[in-house]
Nucleic acid binder design. Structure first.
Length: 683
RNA sequence: GCUGCUGUAGCUCAGUGGUAGAGCACUUCCUUGGUAAGGAAGAGGUCAUGGGUUCAAGUCCCAUCAGUAGCUCCA
């Protein structure tokens, strides 16, 4: 009799010796088919491995039974094993290698390595060649468990200092530690691994980057070698092709191609110049938000882009966040005086902090200005909630290495608003804010976003505000998040020190996450600015503030939107809704009449009256991602029609001009989203 | 800010220390056509910037600036 324990704890009995495959078969045929390897007592084994009596067995699947794709777990194991192979290959080629961590990722894996001399991309072919050789050798991965003292000694003997540190510090609690050995290569590793590397059907080194040991900027910087691996070449090819496709929808590429925005070296890093087409998209979005603001009882305000240092000292943003602000603008006379005194920058900064020098700050946020509007008159509980909205431009001196495209910039415009509410109104108002965010996302046809509710860390005392109010506000955020009808994560400790928040996060075309919309409850600023309202009891009360921005910022939102639509904006957002293409010059007179008629109807219609062939004009119109190409030739002139070529459906044939206008106007009014993908390019 | 890579025409990119290139786009002319590239000619360059090595630098070295992939950061 042989008994085998399965992962769910159940025990299966067999008459005689059994292999992994037979155990899998006894559970089910599809499982047996999908099983690639198993772990027996934590040791990876092949299908023909004979299972000892009393062993714990867990099947590792190559496929999910349903969709036929490799399971995440199997892929992760494969990739992590490939990371070992890669590290081994590097150590064979290079001397003096220190290994750090080598985990798998969503689309591949990496290994942090310190080599002397450092690796370069020129080493890639040699590393890949060696990896190929190691995979062909097909030496098994073997698990070895050691007592902690032995483990430390082994790492010391191998001169792997990062591993020694990790065992002594990170894994200080573990009494035994596991290693995986493959040939001469031994690596401290929790596992699991595939039985032998032969399973790695295809791999590719992707890139080399810097990374700090244990993710700490103050620690030594290592080299992070990125790579990916799959069960077969076909999957790798598909992955690489998907990467190429993703590049095509990169908003930086499309932004140039479609002429939406420009970033100029001479203007400055992270400062966006909105060209006419991009400005149109932005204005359309602002109009869209403005309409909803009116519906929801907001008041729009305008405030300047700078404010006195004192304003930000009161808000607490200066000098605490000085690093991430543009340096202050110093008062003219004081500057002249300081210059003659030969004041250093450091002294200047100190004097500003101490309040000895007056100056202005490019605002890093809009709240203080809005607060001052609230505070400009006496407020009664009857006035609340007061909702002040502004497309407010702010400036933040982001680290140079962080800046890129529209998603991380130094000057940006928030679709900002601040709500001043009574504590009792917090829940309703938060819900109202979320309703707007939900409307925004659904109008854009974006459902691929995640919601994070940031709550306070129960063990920390860094939070301002009454704990009872915090409980209420957190509950309000939770309830409001539920009302979205979408799964959300609650993240303890992710609240700002001044209040809980709800964030909306989307991924860009290369998988990076960006926070867009946000709703934050704030108990802090009303205190710092000593805001009040008179209650029904004729006493002064403290309002609560809610900061909210459904888009987050116009820049980032449009960046994400460009990628979401791959440049094919829905008609209401398309800067160029239609383009008139003449078949020949003979039709130009009529074409101009039609164009004027359509423009009068509020449509944005450009033209291509060049003496090119129609085919060429259509081709360009397609490349420019036009929603509609309006083709006009002598036949249309005769019949009073326009021949429409639809971005998605192709040639729709000739229809009357009035019909065409009605169709397009309706599509604009309905804000119809017809697709998120550019139509296929015929060869 | 840190590490790597990159910077050549408006765009995409070739360019092996020895005369600055291609395709697309642009301009002009010819062509007047019905659903994905008609033809010809022309114009366009401080090879990011500043130093250095060399008889000679787009090419090699250093610095700066910018872009980019990561890391760190993001009130």
């Amino acid at each position: 009799m042989v008994s085998v324990t399965l992962p769910d704890g159940s025990v299966k009995e067999f008459e005689s010796q059994v292999t992994v495959k037979e155990v899998a078969k006894s559970i089910g045929r599809s499982l047996a088919k999908a099983t690639l390897w198993a772990e027996v007592d934590d040791q990876p084994v092949k299908l023909n491995h004979e299972i000892p009596d009393g062993a714990k067995v867990s099947m590792k699947l190559i496929t999910k039974t349903r969709d036929g794709n490799p399971s995440d777990e199997a892929l992760a194991t494969l990739r992590h094993s490939c990371a070992h192979v890669m590290a081994r290959a590097v150590m064979r080629i290079k001397d003096n290698c220190q290994l750090a961590f080598g985990p798998s990722l969503e689309n591949g894996f990496y290994y942090d390595i310190k080599c002397d001399p450092p690796l370069t991309e020129e080493d890639f072919p040699a590393i890949e060649k060696e990896m190929k050789r190691l995979i062909d050798l097909d030496e098994p991965f073997e698990r070895i468990v050691k007592e902690r003292d032995d483990a430390i000694q082994i790492c010391k003997d191998m001169k792997q200092e990062f591993k020694v540190e990790h065992v002594t510090e990170g894994l200080a609690e573990d009494e035994t530690l596991s290693f995986y050995q493959q040939g001469e290569f031994l690596d401290l590793c929790r596992g699991p691994h595939i039985p032998t590397p032969k399973t790695i059907g295809a791999f590719k080194l992707m890139s080399l980057a810097g990374a700090y040991w244990k993710g700490d900027q103050d620690n030594e910087q290592l080299q992070r070698l990125y790579a990916t691996a799959f069960f077969n070449q076909k999957e790798l090819d598909a992955h690489l092709e998907a990467l190429e496709e993703a590049k095509k929808r990169d908003h930086r590429v499309l932004g140039r191609k479609l002429g939406l925005f420009h970033i100029d070296e001479m203007v400055g890093q992270g400062l966006i110049l909105w060209t006419p087409k991009g400005a149109f998209v932005r204005q359309a979005l602002q109009d869209f938000i403005s309409a909803h603001l009116r519906r929801q009882g907001y008041d729009q305000v305008f405030t300047p882009h700078i404010g006195k240092l004192d304003l930000y000292k009161t808000s607490g943003h200066f000098p605490y966040y000085q690093e991430s602000q543009y340096p202050a603008l110093v008062d003219r006379e004081q500057l002249a005086k300081l210059a003659t005194e030969g004041c250093t920058c450091g002294e200047l900064s100190n004097k500003m902090n101490d309040g000895e020098i007056e100056g202005y700050l490019l605002r890093p946020m809009n709240c203080p200005h809005h607060i001052k509007i609230y505070d400009s008159q006496q407020r009664s509980y009857r006035d609340l909630p007061i909702r002040l909205a502004e497309f407010g431009t702010v400036y933040r001196y982001e680290q140079s290495g962080e800046i890129g495209g529209l998603t991380r910039v130094r000057g940006f415009t928030q679709d900002d608003a601040h709500l001043f509410v009574t504590p009792d109104q917090v829940a309703d108002e938060v819900r109202g804010c979320l309703e707007l965010v939900k409307t925004v996302f659904s109008t854009m046809g974006m459902d691929d976003y995640s919601v994070r509710v940031g709550l306070r860390d129960p063990d920390s005392g860094k939070y301002v505000g009454d704990p009872e109010n915090w409980d209420k506000a957190e509950e309000a955020c939770r309830e409001a998040a539920k009302s979205l009808g979408k799964p959300f994560t609650e993240e303890a400790g992710e609240a700002a020190f001044y209040g809980p928040k709800i964030d909306f996060v989307v991924k860009d075309c290369i998988g990076r996450s960006w926070q867009l919309g946000t709703v934050q409850v704030d108990y802090n600023l009303p205190v710092r600015f000593d805001l009040n309202y008179t209650g029904a009891d004729n006493k002064q009360h403290r309002p609560v503030m809610i900061h909210r921005a459904p888009f987050g910022s116009m820049e980032r939102f449009i960046g994400v939107l460009i990628e979401h639509f791959a440049g094919t904006f829905p008609l209401w957002l398309a800067p160029e809704q239609g383009r008139i293409l003449t078949v020949s010059n003979k039709a130009e007179g009529y074409a101009r009449e039609v164009q004027e008629q359509m423009i009068s109807a509020g449509l944005r219609i450009t033209d291509d009256y060049r003496s090119e062939k129609l085919g060429a004009k259509i081709r360009e119109g397609r490349f420019d991602l036009l929603p509609y190409l309006l083709i006009i030739g002598p036949r249309d002139a005769e019949n009073g029609t326009v021949s429409i070529r639809d971005r998605y459906k192709g040639d729709l044939g000739a229809i009357s001009v009035t019909e065409a206008i009605a169709m397009m106007v309706k599509e604009v009014d309905d804000k119809t989203v017809r697709g998120h993908e550019p139509p296929d390019d015929p060869k």
